[in-house]
Protein backbone atom coordinates (compact mmCIF):
# COMPACT_ATOMS: atom_id res chain seq x y z
CA UNK A 1 0.00 0.00 0.00
CA UNK A 2 2.66 2.45 1.14
CA UNK A 3 4.52 2.02 -2.08
CA UNK A 4 1.81 3.78 -4.11
CA UNK A 5 1.22 6.45 -1.48
CA UNK A 6 4.92 7.17 -1.14
CA UNK A 7 5.35 7.31 -4.91
CA UNK A 8 2.45 9.75 -5.08
CA UNK A 9 3.72 12.06 -2.31
CA UNK A 10 7.22 11.86 -3.79
CA UNK A 11 5.81 13.06 -7.11
CA UNK A 12 3.87 15.88 -5.39
CA UNK A 13 7.06 16.94 -3.58
CA UNK A 14 8.89 17.42 -6.84
CA UNK A 15 6.45 20.20 -7.78
CA UNK A 16 6.70 22.04 -4.46
CA UNK A 17 9.10 24.80 -3.35
CA UNK A 18 11.93 23.49 -1.16
CA UNK A 19 10.87 25.34 2.01
CA UNK A 20 7.47 23.58 2.26
CA UNK A 21 8.29 20.34 0.44
CA UNK A 22 8.84 18.05 3.44
CA UNK A 23 6.05 19.52 5.52
CA UNK A 24 3.37 19.30 2.83
CA UNK A 25 4.43 15.83 1.72
CA UNK A 26 4.32 14.49 5.31
CA UNK A 27 0.87 15.93 5.84
CA UNK A 28 -0.36 14.59 2.50
CA UNK A 29 1.03 11.12 3.22
CA UNK A 30 -0.59 11.11 6.66
CA UNK A 31 -3.94 12.15 5.09
CA UNK A 32 -3.73 9.45 2.42
CA UNK A 33 -2.87 6.78 5.01
CA UNK A 34 -5.84 7.85 7.14
CA UNK A 35 -8.14 7.75 4.11
CA UNK A 36 -6.89 4.25 3.21
CA UNK A 37 -7.45 3.11 6.81
CA UNK A 38 -10.98 4.54 6.74
CA UNK A 39 -11.82 2.79 3.48
CA UNK A 40 -10.25 -0.47 4.67
CA UNK A 41 -12.31 -0.27 7.85
CA UNK A 42 -15.49 0.29 5.85
CA UNK A 43 -14.72 -2.67 3.55
CA UNK A 44 -13.44 -4.79 6.46
CA UNK A 45 -10.31 -5.71 4.48
CA UNK A 46 -7.11 -4.12 3.15
CA UNK A 47 -7.36 -2.07 -0.02
CA UNK A 48 -6.15 -3.64 -3.23
CA UNK A 49 -3.58 -1.91 -5.43
CA UNK A 50 -6.32 -0.93 -7.89
CA UNK A 51 -8.39 0.63 -5.12
CA UNK A 52 -5.38 2.63 -3.91
CA UNK A 53 -4.68 3.77 -7.44
CA UNK A 54 -8.34 4.76 -7.78
CA UNK A 55 -7.98 6.88 -4.61
CA UNK A 56 -4.89 8.57 -6.03
CA UNK A 57 -6.74 9.18 -9.28
CA UNK A 58 -9.52 10.87 -7.27
CA UNK A 59 -6.94 13.18 -5.66
CA UNK A 60 -5.68 14.22 -9.08
CA UNK A 61 -2.36 14.69 -10.86
CA UNK A 62 0.51 15.41 -8.42
CA UNK A 63 1.24 18.69 -10.17
CA UNK A 64 -2.32 19.93 -9.54
CA UNK A 65 -2.23 18.81 -5.92
CA UNK A 66 1.07 20.68 -5.46
CA UNK A 67 -0.39 23.75 -7.17
CA UNK A 68 -3.18 23.88 -4.54
CA UNK A 69 -0.58 24.23 -1.80
CA UNK A 70 1.13 27.20 -3.38
CA UNK A 71 0.08 30.82 -3.35
CA UNK A 72 -1.11 32.12 -6.72
CA UNK A 73 0.74 35.37 -7.17
CA UNK A 74 -0.57 37.91 -9.61
CA UNK A 75 1.42 40.83 -10.96
CA UNK A 76 -1.40 43.19 -9.99
CA UNK A 77 -3.93 42.12 -7.39
CA UNK A 78 -7.62 42.10 -8.29
CA UNK A 79 -8.52 44.87 -5.83
CA UNK A 80 -5.72 47.17 -7.00
CA UNK A 81 -6.29 46.68 -10.73
CA UNK A 82 -8.48 49.82 -11.22
CA UNK A 83 -5.83 51.90 -9.41
CA UNK A 84 -3.12 50.33 -11.58
CA UNK A 85 -5.08 51.10 -14.74
CA UNK A 86 -5.62 54.73 -13.72
CA UNK A 87 -1.93 55.21 -12.84
CA UNK A 88 -0.97 53.63 -16.17
CA UNK A 89 -3.16 56.15 -18.02
CA UNK A 90 -1.58 59.06 -16.13
CA UNK A 91 1.88 57.65 -16.73
CA UNK A 92 1.34 57.31 -20.50
CA UNK A 93 -0.09 60.83 -20.65
CA UNK A 94 2.90 62.20 -18.70
CA UNK A 95 5.32 60.33 -20.97
CA UNK A 96 3.56 61.68 -24.08
CA UNK A 97 3.75 65.21 -22.63
CA UNK A 98 7.47 64.91 -21.90
CA UNK A 99 8.11 63.51 -25.37
CA UNK A 100 6.12 66.34 -26.99
CA UNK A 101 8.19 68.88 -25.02
CA UNK A 102 11.42 67.16 -26.08
CA UNK A 103 10.27 67.07 -29.71
CA UNK A 104 9.35 70.79 -29.45
CA UNK A 105 12.80 71.62 -28.09
CA UNK A 106 14.43 69.62 -30.84
CA UNK A 107 12.35 71.51 -33.45
CA UNK A 108 13.40 74.88 -32.01
CA UNK A 109 17.07 73.90 -32.15
CA UNK A 110 16.87 72.82 -35.80
CA UNK A 111 17.80 75.39 -38.44
CA UNK A 112 15.47 73.83 -40.96
CA UNK A 113 12.65 72.37 -38.85
CA UNK A 114 10.81 69.44 -40.46
CA UNK A 115 7.65 68.63 -38.55
CA UNK A 116 6.86 65.55 -40.66
CA UNK A 117 10.18 64.01 -39.74
CA UNK A 118 9.78 64.79 -36.04
CA UNK A 119 6.24 63.36 -35.74
CA UNK A 120 6.99 59.68 -36.49
CA UNK A 121 9.98 59.90 -34.14
CA UNK A 122 7.68 61.37 -31.48
CA UNK A 123 5.14 58.50 -31.86
CA UNK A 124 7.90 55.94 -31.66
CA UNK A 125 9.67 57.40 -28.63
CA UNK A 126 6.32 57.82 -26.81
CA UNK A 127 5.37 54.18 -27.44
CA UNK A 128 8.85 52.99 -26.52
CA UNK A 129 8.97 54.99 -23.28
CA UNK A 130 5.36 53.95 -22.48
CA UNK A 131 6.29 50.28 -22.79
CA UNK A 132 9.13 50.81 -20.31
CA UNK A 133 6.75 52.76 -18.06
CA UNK A 134 4.22 49.93 -18.25
CA UNK A 135 6.89 47.38 -17.31
CA UNK A 136 8.17 49.46 -14.36
CA UNK A 137 4.69 50.23 -13.05
CA UNK A 138 3.75 46.54 -13.21
CA UNK A 139 6.96 45.63 -11.38
CA UNK A 140 6.28 48.23 -8.68
CA UNK A 141 2.75 46.88 -8.17
CA UNK A 142 4.08 43.32 -8.03
CA UNK A 143 6.71 44.20 -5.42
CA UNK A 144 4.82 46.74 -3.32
CA UNK A 145 1.19 46.14 -4.33
CA UNK A 146 0.04 44.91 -0.95
CA UNK A 147 1.36 48.01 0.82
CA UNK A 148 -0.61 50.37 -1.47
CA UNK A 149 -3.69 51.62 0.31
CA UNK A 150 -6.22 52.49 -2.37
CA UNK A 151 -8.41 54.59 -0.07
CA UNK A 152 -5.36 56.65 0.95
CA UNK A 153 -4.39 57.06 -2.72
CA UNK A 154 -7.68 58.76 -3.61
CA UNK A 155 -8.35 60.65 -0.38
CA UNK A 156 -8.13 64.02 -2.17
CA UNK A 157 -10.75 63.04 -4.76
CA UNK A 158 -13.67 65.47 -5.06
CA UNK A 159 -17.07 64.74 -6.64
CA UNK A 160 -16.72 68.08 -8.53
CA UNK A 161 -14.23 66.39 -10.85
CA UNK A 162 -16.83 63.89 -12.11
CA UNK A 163 -17.30 64.07 -15.92
CA UNK A 164 -20.51 65.45 -17.38
CA UNK A 165 -22.96 62.89 -18.71
CA UNK A 166 -23.08 62.88 -22.51
CA UNK A 167 -25.09 60.85 -25.01
CA UNK A 168 -23.12 57.65 -25.46
CA UNK A 169 -23.27 55.14 -28.25
CA UNK A 170 -22.02 51.60 -28.41
CA UNK A 171 -18.93 50.70 -26.37
CA UNK A 172 -15.61 50.58 -28.30
CA UNK A 173 -13.32 47.71 -27.36
CA UNK A 174 -10.28 49.12 -25.51
CA UNK A 175 -8.20 46.14 -26.59
CA UNK A 176 -9.00 46.87 -30.24
CA UNK A 177 -8.12 50.55 -29.83
CA UNK A 178 -4.87 49.70 -28.01
CA UNK A 179 -3.88 47.33 -30.82
CA UNK A 180 -4.75 50.05 -33.36
CA UNK A 181 -2.49 52.56 -31.57
CA UNK A 182 0.45 50.15 -31.39
CA UNK A 183 0.09 49.02 -35.03
CA UNK A 184 -0.16 52.63 -36.26
CA UNK A 185 2.92 53.72 -34.30
CA UNK A 186 4.94 50.74 -35.49
CA UNK A 187 3.82 51.24 -39.11
CA UNK A 188 4.68 54.96 -38.99
CA UNK A 189 8.09 54.22 -37.46
CA UNK A 190 8.75 51.52 -40.05
CA UNK A 191 7.65 53.66 -42.99
CA UNK A 192 9.82 56.55 -41.81
CA UNK A 193 12.87 54.31 -41.27
CA UNK A 194 12.93 54.86 -37.50
CA UNK A 195 12.99 51.09 -37.11
CA UNK A 196 14.71 48.88 -39.76
CA UNK A 197 12.73 48.03 -42.89
CA UNK A 198 14.39 44.62 -43.18
CA UNK A 199 13.66 41.59 -41.03
CA UNK A 200 16.22 39.31 -39.38
CA UNK A 201 19.59 38.06 -40.58
CA UNK A 202 18.28 36.86 -43.91
CA UNK A 203 16.56 40.14 -44.68
CA UNK A 204 13.27 40.64 -46.34
CA UNK A 205 13.56 44.28 -47.33
CA UNK A 206 10.91 46.52 -48.85
CA UNK A 207 12.16 48.84 -51.58
CA UNK A 208 10.07 51.95 -52.16
CA UNK A 209 10.24 53.94 -55.38
CA UNK A 210 11.44 57.57 -55.35
CA UNK A 211 7.86 58.80 -55.75
CA UNK A 212 7.09 57.81 -52.14
CA UNK A 213 9.21 60.69 -50.78
CA UNK A 214 6.73 63.23 -52.14
CA UNK A 215 3.76 61.33 -50.76
CA UNK A 216 5.26 60.58 -47.33
CA UNK A 217 4.13 63.83 -45.61
CA UNK A 218 0.54 63.10 -46.71
CA UNK A 219 0.73 59.51 -45.51
CA UNK A 220 2.17 60.74 -42.20
CA UNK A 221 -0.66 63.27 -41.89
CA UNK A 222 -3.19 60.48 -42.45
CA UNK A 223 -1.41 58.26 -39.92
CA UNK A 224 -1.39 61.11 -37.38
CA UNK A 225 -5.13 61.64 -37.86
CA UNK A 226 -5.74 57.87 -37.50
CA UNK A 227 -3.58 57.78 -34.39
CA UNK A 228 -5.43 60.68 -32.78
CA UNK A 229 -8.71 58.91 -33.54
CA UNK A 230 -7.41 55.63 -32.04
CA UNK A 231 -6.20 57.43 -28.90
CA UNK A 232 -9.58 59.20 -28.58
CA UNK A 233 -11.33 55.81 -28.85
CA UNK A 234 -8.96 54.38 -26.24
CA UNK A 235 -9.53 57.17 -23.71
CA UNK A 236 -13.26 57.67 -24.33
CA UNK A 237 -14.42 54.23 -25.47
CA UNK A 238 -17.93 55.16 -26.69
CA UNK A 239 -19.04 55.88 -30.21
CA UNK A 240 -20.32 59.41 -30.64
CA UNK A 241 -21.58 60.92 -33.88
CA UNK A 242 -18.40 63.00 -34.14
CA UNK A 243 -16.20 59.92 -33.73
CA UNK A 244 -18.21 57.96 -36.29
CA UNK A 245 -17.91 60.76 -38.85
CA UNK A 246 -14.16 61.05 -38.17
CA UNK A 247 -13.64 57.32 -38.51
CA UNK A 248 -15.64 57.14 -41.76
CA UNK A 249 -13.91 60.24 -43.15
CA UNK A 250 -10.47 58.65 -42.75
CA UNK A 251 -11.30 56.13 -45.48
CA UNK A 252 -11.41 58.87 -48.14
CA UNK A 253 -7.77 60.09 -47.94
CA UNK A 254 -6.64 56.45 -47.60
CA UNK A 255 -8.42 55.59 -50.86
CA UNK A 256 -6.95 58.67 -52.56
CA UNK A 257 -3.41 57.75 -51.43
CA UNK A 258 -3.88 54.15 -52.61
CA UNK A 259 -5.24 55.40 -55.95
CA UNK A 260 -2.17 57.64 -56.40
CA UNK A 261 0.15 54.70 -55.66
CA UNK A 262 -1.83 52.53 -58.10
CA UNK A 263 -0.88 54.89 -60.94
CA UNK A 264 2.86 54.52 -60.32
CA UNK A 265 5.08 52.01 -62.11
CA UNK A 266 6.84 49.59 -59.73
CA UNK A 267 5.89 51.50 -56.59
CA UNK A 268 7.06 48.77 -54.25
CA UNK A 269 9.20 45.64 -54.38
CA UNK A 270 10.40 43.07 -51.89
CA UNK A 271 14.03 41.94 -51.78
CA UNK A 272 14.65 38.57 -50.14
CA UNK A 273 18.24 37.69 -49.16
CA UNK A 274 21.45 39.67 -49.58
CA UNK A 275 24.32 39.95 -52.07
CA UNK A 276 24.36 37.59 -55.02
CA UNK A 277 21.52 35.51 -53.64
CA UNK A 278 19.17 38.45 -53.37
CA UNK A 279 15.90 38.07 -55.24
CA UNK A 280 13.58 40.96 -55.97
CA UNK A 281 9.82 40.67 -56.39
CA UNK A 282 8.09 43.77 -57.69
CA UNK A 283 4.47 44.46 -56.75
CA UNK A 284 2.78 45.08 -60.10
CA UNK A 285 0.01 47.66 -60.36
CA UNK A 286 -2.39 44.67 -60.58
CA UNK A 287 -1.50 43.68 -56.99
CA UNK A 288 -1.81 47.24 -55.81
CA UNK A 289 -5.14 47.40 -57.67
CA UNK A 290 -6.33 44.27 -55.84
CA UNK A 291 -5.21 45.85 -52.53
CA UNK A 292 -7.08 49.04 -53.44
CA UNK A 293 -10.24 47.11 -54.35
CA UNK A 294 -9.98 45.04 -51.16
CA UNK A 295 -9.63 48.17 -49.05
CA UNK A 296 -12.54 49.83 -50.88
CA UNK A 297 -14.81 46.84 -50.06
CA UNK A 298 -13.74 46.84 -46.39
CA UNK A 299 -14.20 50.64 -46.22
CA UNK A 300 -17.68 50.35 -47.77
CA UNK A 301 -18.77 47.71 -45.25
CA UNK A 302 -17.33 49.80 -42.41
CA UNK A 303 -19.11 52.95 -43.63
CA UNK A 304 -22.45 51.10 -43.89
CA UNK A 305 -22.03 49.70 -40.35
CA UNK A 306 -21.05 53.09 -38.95
CA UNK A 307 -23.86 54.87 -40.79
CA UNK A 308 -26.29 52.53 -39.01
CA UNK A 309 -24.61 53.26 -35.67
CA UNK A 310 -24.82 56.99 -36.46
CA UNK A 311 -28.58 56.75 -36.93
CA UNK A 312 -28.96 54.56 -33.84
CA UNK A 313 -27.27 57.11 -31.57
CA UNK A 314 -30.02 59.60 -32.42
Amino acid sequence: MNNWLERYTYAVKSYLPAQVRGDVADELLSDLQDECDYRAETLNRDLTDDEIKALLKERGHPMLVAADFQPRPTLVSHSLFPVYLQLLRWLVMAIALVQICLAGLSLIQQQDPRVWQILPQLFWSTLNASLYGFAWLTLIFYLFGESINRTELFKHWKPDTLPKVSAEGEYISRTGSAIEVVVLVYFTAWLNRIIPRSLGENPIAFVFSEQWIGLLPWINALLLASLLMAVAKLIFPYWTRRKLIGDMALHLPTLIILAVIYQWDSALSVVIGTGEHAREFAFSSTWIGIGLAGYAIVALIDVITKARQYRAIG
Partner: peptide, 20 residues
Protein backbone atom coordinates in the same frame (compact mmCIF):
# COMPACT_ATOMS: atom_id res chain seq x y z
CA UNK B 1 -7.96 14.27 8.06
CA UNK B 2 -9.99 14.28 11.29
CA UNK B 3 -11.10 17.86 10.58
CA UNK B 4 -12.23 16.88 7.09
CA UNK B 5 -14.19 13.93 8.50
CA UNK B 6 -15.65 16.14 11.23
CA UNK B 7 -16.92 18.61 8.63
CA UNK B 8 -18.08 15.84 6.29
CA UNK B 9 -20.10 14.17 9.08
CA UNK B 10 -21.87 17.51 9.50
CA UNK B 11 -22.71 17.66 5.78
CA UNK B 12 -19.92 20.03 4.80
CA UNK B 13 -17.90 18.28 2.10
CA UNK B 14 -14.47 19.84 1.62
CA UNK B 15 -11.83 18.38 -0.64
CA UNK B 16 -8.21 18.16 0.49
CA UNK B 17 -7.11 20.61 -2.20
CA UNK B 18 -9.24 23.26 -0.51
CA UNK B 19 -8.87 22.36 3.16
CA UNK B 20 -5.09 22.01 3.53
Amino acid sequence: YSLRRFLQDRELEVDEGTLY
